[in-house]
Amino acid sequence: MKKLDPKYIPLFATAIVMLALYAGGCLAYPNFGSLRVFINLLGDNAFIGVAAMGATFVIISGGIDLSVGSAIAFTSILIAQLLGHHWPPAGAFALTLLIGLAYGTVQGALIHLFALPAFLVTLGGMFFLRGLSFVLSPESLAIKHPFYLQTVRTMAIPITQRPFVTFPLTAQCFVVVTIIAAIIAGYTRFGRNIYAIGSSESSAILMGVPVGQTKIGIYALAGFFSALSGCVATFYMQSGNPASFVGLELDAIASVAIGGTLLTGGVGFVPGTAMGVIILGLIQTLITFQGNLNSWWTRIAAGVLLLLFITLQKVVGSKRH
């Protein structure tokens, strides 16, 4: 009697695509299946993963956040500047995360209190933060703080000795944030309210869900995750760059959609988003392994995958009725 709930179909498709890509890579390239490649995949895409978690909440609520890429670039350059001015790393991270939270709150407030379209507000946020990044520094800044040169490396957890493979700090962040996001989504009233608003805002109001509070909270959370993603990105890049991460919002949105979250809101899966991030990472790795393909193919592949999964959602959605 228990048939597969149609809302899980895209999620299963995601898992299958992920496994197929991985298996395909392993078959095509001898080193693809190595543990190191897989760990690198997690580590290199960790910052996208963190940002995508924020985007997941926004999209489940039926909104959109286009400011992700700029926010990461802004945070990275802010951290580089703060550390350059001899701030302690902990202080720099704390201030950065606080700013992320604050700017997210402002976006949420504009969207909720003044009923401005989310895309417009976050498009504004995208350009604002991009401009602000260039105000902080017109050029890329290398981070030479000892925390980055040594501590980040020593915080990696060794997995195997021969070959020597470690689980880097970035990947740890990805895993931890995914777990936290999953708990928020599945086990807090705030998280459940996000689903309710995305599915039917008018019903949510009548059912006594604090819609305003929740909506502003969602964007605040997304801002926080973007800032956190910026921190993680600096671990990986060892620098801050005002011109970086252009178009990253598509990667984030694509990961979310590939992970089975409905772009119209109401249905969404945090683990799905993590899989979506891994799928995009796999594609990038495949393109690297292939060797002679232009890196711009990654962008195109992200677009195509996003389109495919939206179409899948449409098909599943229309079958249900």
Binding site: G247, I253, W296, T298, R299, I300
Partner: peptide, 13 residues
């Protein structure tokens, strides 16, 4: 937004 975002990013590729 989504439809044109796809082209916005993939198109530059």
């Amino acid at each position: 937004i989504i439809a044109t975002l796809i082209l916005m990013v993939a198109g530059r590729g």
